[in-house]
């Protein structure tokens, strides 16, 4: 459903041109759970931003569910972004002084529909944070904040969740919990999950690893089965809501 073909992204700066993406082609199917790896500056975030319609490519085409979305106007991109994508960031990116449930309601504010509160509570419940609904970010641990961010990304029932180094600020145990949640979302709800990571044990949770260097994809490996890296990894039989806490 995601199809990138020879996508380039060139930033023009005072110091000259930066070729952040230098002709990237990638195909992603619904329900895939993908890790993007590569050293810093290799273009991972740039590619994520283009996939998530936060940015547009300088050259090449991006086809989403068969429609060319490489050159959309800002408003259309915003609308599609809100409906189809959920974002999770390394720094959580929660709004200060806003309760967890309000954070999760945020994407629904920009869409039609009612029952925002109920949907937000349901999403919080799915990441095991129903009892923290009225907590503000500074009253939550890093892992809990990231789970609020995940709840916010999935409240709109997105097709794709894009997580840019979601475990970068978390300890190993919490990182594994987060990856467990992503794995379940991909498996049970056929949400495509793309995770940028530096750590191979995190990448091991996924069933495909794409490696980048200097704005190019240098390898793309699929694994047929999830190979948990440790015994504490979640099992498909455990509901997401019971993970962690």
């Amino acid at each position: 459903m995601i199809h990138l073909e020879n996508v380039e992204k060139v930033y023009r700066t005072e110091a000259g041109e930066v070729r952040a993406l230098d002709g990237v082609s990638l195909d992603v199917q619904a329900g895939e759970f993908i890790a993007i790896m590569g050293s810093s500056g290799s273009g991972k975030s740039t590619m994520m931003n283009i996939i998530g319609l936060l940015d547009d490519p300088t050259a090449g085409t991006y086809t989403l569910d068969g429609a060319d979305v490489s050159k959309l106007d800002d408003d259309t991109r915003s609308k599609l972004r809100g409906r189809l994508f959920g974002f999770v960031f390394q720094s959580y990116n929660l709004v200060p002084r806003m309760t967890a449930v309000e954070q999760v309601e945020l994407p629904l504010l920009y869409q039609r529909g009612t029952n925002r509160r109920a949907m937000a509570l349901e999403a919080l419940d799915r990441v095991g944070l129903a009892d923290r609904a009225s907590h503000q970010p500074n009253q939550l641990s890093g892992g809990q904040q990231q789970r609020v961010a995940i709840a916010r990304s999935l409240v709109v029932h997105p097709n794709v969740i894009l997580a840019d180094e979601p475990t970068g600020a978390l300890d190993t145990r919490t990182s594994e919990e987060v990856m467990g949640i992503f794995g379940n979302l991909a498996r049970e709800q056929r949400i495509t999950v793309v995770v940028v990571t530096h750590e191979s044990n995190i990448a091991d949770f996924t069933n495909r690893t794409v490696r980048m260097r200097d704005g190019l994809i240098i390898s793309d490996e699929r694994r047929l089965q999830v190979i948990p890296s440790s015994a504490s990894s979640p099992d498909a039989s455990i509901p997401v809501s019971e993970v962690g806490s």
Partner: peptide, 16 residues
């Protein structure tokens, strides 16, 4: 600024 970025990421248009 960051709050604005978050709102844009979750679907807010510039006009919103």
């Amino acid at each position: 600024t960051r709050e604005i970025g978050i709102r844009r990421a979750v679907g807010a248009r510039g006009t919103d």
